[in-house]
Simulated assay, not measured.
Amino acid sequence: MSSVTGTSGTSAASQSSDSGNPSANLTDVSQLQNNFISLMVAQIQYQDPTNPVDSTQFVNQYSQLSQVKSLENLNTIQKNSLVLADNLQNLSAAGLVGHQVMVSADSLQLDSAVVGGQAQLEHASSTTTLQLTSAATGEVSEVALGPQDAGSVSFSIDPQALGLAPGKYSVAIKTSSGETPKVEIGGKVSHVRVSNNGPVLEVDGVGTVPFYNIVEFGSSAA
């Protein structure tokens, strides 16, 4: 009897919680716990004296109910933590407006301004080349960076000196070792937009960049 009553009460409470509020509702859990205790007392009071109910059933069911309440509490704490983390990330991203950042990118938007960047080499390279491919024409332009030791390699792209027309270009670095490091482009954050996937930054010279693509902050990213 007690087993059927406990299962039915839990199912009803779950349906009520799902239809009324998709988040954890501690009030419903507490009410369910109070109802269970009341039913347990009533069942003990009106049980057949010649065939008493096994008390271990009550203990097991109450233990399960307590576990449900603990899980609901944990679920609520986790959801609040995620909301707090999202808010902190949005505030951090908003504070970058007007500041220089270095972002990981495989393309950039060129006009007449010089664009700076860098790459991190794991191996030394006797011949290092920066390749720019026009999205409009497919034409490939190369900038020789010379021999490079392992570590940070800085470069600058002057569209006018290179004779590059304004537009979008894919960018990559080729090395004699066969390594293809990620390209990092520096630019100023013009504004930040909040999306379902987190903050999205508009970086001059790069375009739209997710917040997690930032690899460096501060003046050294200029």
Score class of each variant (00 low, 15 high):
residue 101 V to L: 03
residue 109 Q to M: 08
residue 107 S to Q: 00
residue 73 N to D: 08
residue 94 A to P: 07
residue 84 L to Q: 10
residue 49 P to Y: 00
residue 73 N to Y: 04
residue 66 S to L: 11
residue 77 I to L: 15
residue 50 T to D: 08
residue 70 S to T: 15
residue 64 Q to P: 01
residue 80 N to W: 05
residue 60 N to P: 03
residue 76 T to L: 11
residue 86 D to P: 00
residue 76 T to V: 04
residue 104 S to Y: 04
residue 64 Q to H: 10
residue 77 I to K: 14
residue 106 D to L: 01
residue 58 F to D: 08
residue 52 P to M: 06
residue 73 N to Q: 15
residue 111 D to E: 07
residue 64 Q to L: 13
residue 74 L to P: 00
residue 79 K to W: 06
residue 79 K to E: 09
residue 60 N to Q: 13
residue 60 N to T: 14
residue 51 N to F: 05
residue 82 L to G: 03
residue 70 S to Y: 14
residue 52 P to A: 09
residue 87 N to L: 15
residue 72 E to N: 11
residue 107 S to F: 02
residue 61 Q to W: 03
residue 58 F to K: 08
residue 60 N to L: 13
residue 59 V to K: 05
residue 89 Q to S: 09
residue 99 H to F: 06
residue 50 T to K: 06
residue 94 A to G: 10
residue 95 G to F: 02
residue 73 N to A: 08
residue 83 V to A: 13
residue 57 Q to K: 09
residue 101 V to R: 02
residue 71 L to G: 15
residue 51 N to V: 05
residue 66 S to Q: 13
residue 102 M to L: 10
residue 106 D to R: 10
residue 106 D to I: 00
residue 59 V to D: 08
residue 79 K to N: 13
residue 82 L to A: 13
residue 52 P to Q: 03
residue 67 Q to W: 00
residue 52 P to W: 08
residue 69 K to C: 01
residue 80 N to H: 06
residue 84 L to C: 01
residue 75 N to A: 14
residue 68 V to L: 15
residue 87 N to C: 10
residue 79 K to V: 14
residue 74 L to K: 12
residue 101 V to P: 02
residue 67 Q to R: 08
residue 77 I to R: 12
residue 98 G to S: 01
residue 49 P to F: 02
residue 92 S to T: 12
residue 94 A to M: 11
residue 64 Q to Y: 06
residue 64 Q to S: 15
residue 103 V to Q: 07
residue 84 L to N: 04
residue 61 Q to P: 03
residue 110 L to A: 10
residue 73 N to G: 07
residue 72 E to I: 02
residue 57 Q to M: 06
residue 106 D to H: 04
residue 80 N to T: 06
residue 96 L to G: 02
residue 78 Q to P: 03
residue 69 K to G: 09
residue 62 Y to E: 11
residue 54 D to P: 01
residue 63 S to D: 02
residue 83 V to H: 02
residue 109 Q to R: 11
residue 83 V to T: 12
residue 100 Q to H: 13
residue 112 S to E: 10
residue 49 P to S: 05
residue 52 P to H: 12
residue 73 N to F: 07
residue 98 G to N: 01
residue 65 L to E: 11
residue 100 Q to K: 15
residue 62 Y to C: 06
residue 97 V to N: 07
residue 67 Q to A: 05
residue 52 P to G: 09
residue 71 L to H: 07
residue 102 M to T: 08
residue 55 S to T: 14
residue 56 T to I: 01
residue 96 L to R: 02
residue 103 V to E: 04
residue 107 S to V: 00
residue 85 A to V: 07
residue 107 S to N: 00
residue 65 L to P: 08
residue 106 D to E: 07
residue 55 S to P: 14
residue 72 E to L: 02
residue 78 Q to L: 02
residue 101 V to Y: 01
residue 105 A to I: 05
residue 90 N to K: 09
residue 113 A to I: 08
residue 88 L to Y: 00
residue 110 L to P: 03
residue 92 S to F: 06
residue 100 Q to W: 12
residue 110 L to D: 05
residue 76 T to Y: 07
residue 97 V to Q: 12
residue 86 D to L: 05
residue 63 S to V: 03
residue 71 L to Y: 12
residue 89 Q to F: 04
residue 91 L to G: 09
